[in-house]
Structure formats: C-alpha cells, structure tokens
Design a binder for these strands. Structure first.
Length: 400
DNA sequence: GTAATCACG
DNA sequence: ACGTACGTGATTACA
C-alpha cells in the first residue's frame, strides 16, 4: 500500500521524450527497412508478407529449402525465431537480411513510432502505468506504454534510449541500479559464507565464482571461464538444468552437468537452501519473500514431472526475485518521503526492477547522489552489503 | 482470442 | 523418451 502513492507520483510526473530525434530516426529506419525488404523479396524470388512468420517459414524451408531438418512449433509451423535463424546465417544470404529487418521493424513499430504518439503535446512527456498486482513474484509491471523494456542491447536500440531526456536544461537524468541484487539476496537467504565473503570483499562475483569452480587464481580467470560462471550464477537463480546451461553456453550437456555439480560443491549452502524452499512449498503450498509476500504453487505436488519441475523452479526463483522487489520498493518509499520532506525539486520518474531513474535538479545533484545511494543501500539489512551503481547525463543512455 | 516473436530485468 | 531456466508487455498475423 505505501508504494501506491509513490507510483502515483511517478506516473503523474512522466518523463520527457525527444520526439524530434525519434522522428528523424523513424525516417532512417523506413529507408533501411525498404532496402532490406526489397532484398528479401529478391532473394526469395517471390512476393510474400515478410512480417508473417507462417509465410516466412514456408519460403525458407519449402521454397528455398534452407534446412531439411527445420524445427516446428507446437502448432506445426516452422520455427523462424532469432535463435533458429541465427544458426542458419551461413546457409543463405536472406537470413541476415531477415534478422536485420525484424530488429529494425520491432524498434520502429514498438518504440520509435509508438512512443511519440503517447506524449502529451504540450509537455512532450509520456506517462506509464505501474501495476502492482500482475507479476506473481511481487515485481511491478509497466504498461501503456511499457517503460520497463526500452531497448539498450543493440546500437540501434540505444538510439531509442537516448530519446529519454531531462525536463529542461536545469535538470539531469540520474540512474541508480542495484549491482547483482538477486545473487546477493540468495547469498544472504542461504547463508552461503563463501559467496557472502566474496560480496563483502567487493569482488567481481562472476570472476570470483569462476576462480573457485575452475580452481584457478582470480588473476588467471579467462574471459570464457568468467562467462560460463556468469551463466551458471544467473541459471542458479532460475533453477538450472544441464540442458539449459549447455544451451546458453558452448558447453556440452556433460560439461554443463559437471560445472553445475562443481558449483554446488563450491557453494554447498545454496543447494541446501534451494531444496529447503522446495520442501517448504510441498508442505505449505506457497513460498515467501523477505517481506512475507507469498507465491502459491498449486502444481508443487503434481504427478506430472514436467509441471512439477516448473513449480519447483518457481519455488526457488520467486523468493529471490520477489525479495529483490521488496527491497527496491522499500527504497522507493524512503526516497520519496525524503524528497517530499526536503522540499526538493528532484523527482523519481521510473523503476525498472533493479534500477531507479531520477530527474535531478542540477543544484541538488551532490545531495541527491548521497541521498539516493544511502537509501538504496540501506533499504534492507542483509548479511551481504547492497551495492549501487549510478551515473548521470543528458539522456537515459548516458545515465545508465 | 491465440500464437509467434522480441523488447527489457 | 520427454521436455527443460525466472519474470513481464507490445506488435503482428491469423483463425
């Protein structure tokens, strides 16, 4: 309940959009899309709707016969998703054009063209809605428009993020995000000393994990080892399988299985904690977060092993993801109250699961850096420190 | 209304 | 042999 008034303020405040930058970008994308579309039709040798996965699958696998062992979806259509197409990049020149077309079309229709239409004409501000009763774990969700999935991973995507700007010259955007909050939560909840120690020492957790599981010194950890350790660390939060890990890495099923086993030997309390969560769920029918939010798991005792397996992963993941959500909500309430009490002009604008975005009145900047960091790090006391990264700039990309 | 796809943490 | 990592929302095609 206390979060709701904070969300109301954030929704009402809105964030300013550089609509001119987006309309220029839209024209660029139109030109690029037209060329790609032309090339795709030429390669196919026949006119078809490139936006239809059904028609595209027919062209790729029946007409061009790019892959005789093409996989299908549960409805019998050929799969044409990114993972599938990426593997076929070297088989035909059409593939790369389709991947580029898809990416640019997504950016244009979902963000570049859609967002300016939602801006209030007099202010150029857009106002999302935050929902507290959608996500099963206690996270927020955002819609109309969703401002929790603004692109960042590709260069073109980052152009979209650049269009989120401070309200005027007197303000700067500041983004503050929790560093590895879910891993810190699982380390604290499981009381896994080795992992707690790594966080207390301010270590790079993925490198630290790699050093331990591959039995090398921290300075000898290769990029590949760190990458694999990072994937396992994330996988643990979701309830990894050897299959899932091998899918996400270059490791074989057997290697993935061995890595998971070594991981649990390195962090034995983690495995204990995870099975205790599953046991609790079997006995009570739900699991809880730090703030006692419950997630009910009706399938936890299902006779169907697939269904039960999914519920067991939920039993492990929900307390972690949900506790991280508890922590940031507490931080939001405390920051909001401080901003109100201090009569500051700075406003909290956005929440993206482990990140808060502020429009900071420049004369308040030094005060805000301290206040925000302090409140986020001390929102909840765990047996591991919470660490914040923050940055600022004249747009959301620079602030991130 | 559902499926497929893809954007984010 | 099966089916497999957690949580969302928007767009498009299509029945």
């Amino acid at each position: 309940m206390p979060v709701s008034s904070v969300l109301m303020s954030m929704e009402h405040e809105g964030i300013t959009l550089d609509t001119e930058a987006l309309s220029k970008f839209s024209i660029e994308l139109s030109n690029s899309l037209e060329k790609l579309h032309e090339g795709i039709i030429k390669d196919a040798g026949i006119e078809f709707n490139v936006d239809s996965p059904k028609q595209l699958g027919d062209i790729l696998f029946n007409v061009l016969q790019i892959d005789e062992k093409a996989k299908t979806t549960k409805t019998g259509q050929f799969k044409t998703d990114e993972a599938t197409l990426s593997k076929l990049k070297n088989e035909h020149e059409i593939i790369d054009k389709i991947l580029n077309y898809r990416q640019q079309k997504k950016l244009k229709s979902t963000y570049v063209d859609a967002l300016p239409k939602l801006a209030t004409p007099t202010t150029n501000k857009i106002h999302t809605s935050y929902l507290q009763t959608v996500a099963a774990t206690g996270r927020l969700s955002s819609n109309n428009p969703n401002l929790q999935n603004i692109p960042i991973r590709t260069e073109r995507g980052r152009q979209v993020r650049k269009a989120f700007v401070p309200r005027n010259e007197e303000y700067t955007l500041l983004a503050a995000d929790y560093s590895q909050i879910e891993l810190r939560v699982i380390a604290a909840m499981s009381q896994e000393e080795t992992m707690i120690e790594a966080f207390k020492n301010g270590e790079d957790i993925h490198a630290s994990t790699a050093a331990k599981v591959f039995n090398v010194s921290l300075s000898d950890v290769t990029r590949e080892q760190r990458g694999n350790a990072k994937t396992v660390n994330f996988g643990i939060i979701y309830g990894v399988s050897a299959f899932g890990l091998s899918n996400q890495t270059d490791l074989s099923r057997t290697e993935a299985k061995e890595l998971i086993e070594t991981y649990y030997e390195t962090y034995p309390k983690l495995r204990k904690y995870m099975s205790s969560q599953v046991d609790f769920a079997r006995d009570h029918g739900y699991v809880t977060t730090l703030s006692n939010r419950r997630r009910y798991l009706k399938d936890i005792n299902s006779r169907n092993a697939i269904v039960r397996g999914a519920a067991e992963r939920n039993a492990v993941n929900a307390p972690i993801q949900g506790s991280a959500a508890d922590v940031i909500k507490i931080a939001m309430i405390n920051i909001y109250n401080k901003l109100q009490q201090g009569g500051f002009k700075t406003k909290m604008l956005l929440q993206v699961h482990d990140e808060l975005v502020f429009d900071v009145y420049k004369p308040e900047l030094e005060t805000m850096k301290v206040l925000i960091k302090e409140e986020m790090e001390n929102a909840y006391t765990l047996s591991v420190p919470l660490d914040i990264e923050m940055d600022m700039g004249s747009n959301w990309l620079e602030a991130h």
